[in-house]
Write a protein that binds this DNA or RNA. Structure first.
Lengths: 340, 340
DNA sequence: CTGTTAGCGCATTCAA
DNA sequence: TTGAATGCGCTAACAG
């Protein structure tokens, strides 16, 4: 049933060693022998036993990904594009992707430790980097290969791919201001995310450039969920701050925002502007289409994976960080409405 | 750096065997010894080497999932909820999930074979079952444990979880007919999917029940993408068949359908009805909200995983197939519009 | 309750 | 160019 190298040795009359050599391509093996062995191996449907090979080689040829919170991550097409990019790139080099799910934050750390200490994967991909991220410090301490999607703020330089958060929010805010908006409600990601402060800074800088007073009541941090978008927009509306534009930091949030505005009978693109971040098919296909900031997330997934695999194949490989500038995609939700 | 059982043996003075026994919980070990060993193991940060354990136990404690076409699967929240359900359930029993991506159909089969023959995973989860699915016949031949999401049509009974496709389309079509629609364009999934014919049958039966003539020009099969939804709706509109309702077989398709109808200035819910299948946050949050058929897909992911794990732990376990009835969620896109 | 011995399947010495 | 021997780290059978 299970075909091993031993079976092929028996079938061909060669030793186990020789079969191994012929099949892996290393060392000198006479062409005839190699041909013969390969032929027989194919006929018998041989495939090297993964566990044995990993044990012997001390490498699993697998990349690990710990998914923080199941629900949140997996309903966001943005994350999925990221995953897709990882998959696309890893499959090229025949690396496999091991996904561990955790339902809470503590669990996440435990799973990561297990993954690393049991040598289950060769390297780790991290995302949603936090301030003083424990995962990062753990991996650094263990000298375990990893690449992050998101800036890492710690001593030394570590490999990561980052989207310029300051530039992102600056662009959007700047666009809104140029359209005449002054009261722009900014719904940011949670504060524990590293990027939160950069995004806030970009927003503030744009206001500053146009001498618009910053009002911290218009800024709210929350998880990138539709329900958060919904309740926050409602909240802001209730405060009656004469907001003319909403800028939400994720497309999924935009779903909730749109719902809230629809319910309040406020017409998007005419009575109020709405802009988002991520530019997934959500904002692209809404009615009206929503202005959003395109981030090449599929590509980022690819890049992160590429970097990690390079590191795995060359311990001394030193990679610079990659910073990506996002691109503003203007749509009806902000373009038609011009204030005085 | 890497702590093995041997290190702990040295540190505690016991034999390697005893350490193994103490740590895995099997066999009789004196409480004191066990306590001691566990304590030292913790201090040293021991974690059993995954490859070694797998090799020895001949089990990897990992479930495999081959994702057919990267792009298609990963932009559909429906699939993602499925994935999420799998992750949720597998993490409960500490099973890991190995995801292999393939970019084309041939690749998919090769990856599956590799996974199985290299004993990289203990069992497989399949989805999007095809007519005469090669993956199924391969797994059956190899007697490899697997569970499918989607009906399997072959001799013998194999474990799968299925959504009743006939019932699904019957419910929706029936609802539309009751609202007065007679010209209902039905956009089905590709024909090579097993469920396509059942869905078609449900649609036909509903027409039959109300003595409505079946028109095969109104039925089109295609991939569940937004672009397909878009082009097909446009195509049907051009044919000028006086269609009063569209019924698309996926929420992602609905995105494209809505776009096409918007562009044609046909108001959804007033001038035309639109219904979909899957009920993800897409149809829930559109403007207007779209009638869709709720399928407890997260739960299905859980169920499929549960079944597989049961099979893995008990070879002789015989599981009946699970058939799930979907639930119609009526929203504005079909509810307000009543024809003569 | 504990230790010795053996082997999972493979890849790498070393020796021929 | 080939084969014999060794061990990756763990667990299970068998003794004691």
């Amino acid at each position: 049933m299970k075909v091993t190298i031993k079976d092929i040795a028996k079938a061909t009359g060669f030793s186990v060693t020789q079969v191994s050599r012929a099949l892996t391509g290393y060392s000198d093996v006479s062409p005839k022998t190699r041909e013969n062995i390969i032929k027989v191996a194919k006929e018998m449907g041989y495939q090297p036993n993964y566990s044995a090979r990993s044990l012997r080689r001390q490498r699993t040829h697998t990349i690990g990904l710990v998914i923080p919170s199941t629900r949140l991550a997996l309903t966001d097409p943005f994350f999925l594009e990221f995953l897709s990019g990882i998959g696309y790139e890893s499959s090229k080099t025949r690396y496999d992707l091991l996904i561990s799910f955790s339902n809470n934050k503590n669990g996440q750390m435990k799973i990561l430790k297990d993954l690393v200490l049991s040598r289950r994967v060769d390297g780790i991909i991290l995302n949603r980097i936090e301030n003083e991220d424990k995962r990062v410090s753990f991996l650094l301490e263990k000298k375990y290969p990893f690449v992050a999607f998101g800036k890492i703020e710690s001593d030394g330089d570590h490999p990561y791919v980052e989207i310029d958060g300051f530039d992102a929010t600056y662009q959007v805010t700047n666009h809104l201001i140029k359209k005449g908006h002054k009261k722009i409600s900014f719904i940011n990601v949670p504060e524990w995310q590293v990027c939160a402060k950069y995004r806030l800074a970009g927003y503030k800088k744009a206001l500053e450039d146009y001498n618009i007073q910053f009002d911290d009541e218009l800024v709210i941090n929350n998880e990138e969920t539709d329900s958060a978008g919904y309740s926050i927009v409602n909240e802001i509306l209730k405060k009656n701050k004469h907001v003319t534009a909403f800028f939400v930091n994720s497309d999924v949030m935009a779903i909730g925002a749109v719902k809230a505005l629809n319910e309040a009978k406020i017409e998007i693109g005419k009575e109020i502007a709405l802009a988002a971040l991520n530019d997934t098919n959500i904002t692209q296909n809404m009615n009206p289409p929503i202005t959003s900031l395109a981030q090449p997330i599929h590509l980022i997934g690819e890049k992160v994976t590429q970097m990690l695999i390079k590191i795995l194949n060359n311990k001394d490989f030193k990679l610079k960080q990659v910073i990506i500038k996002p691109k503003l995609i203007i749509r009806e939700s902000t373009s038609n409405m011009i204030l005085n």
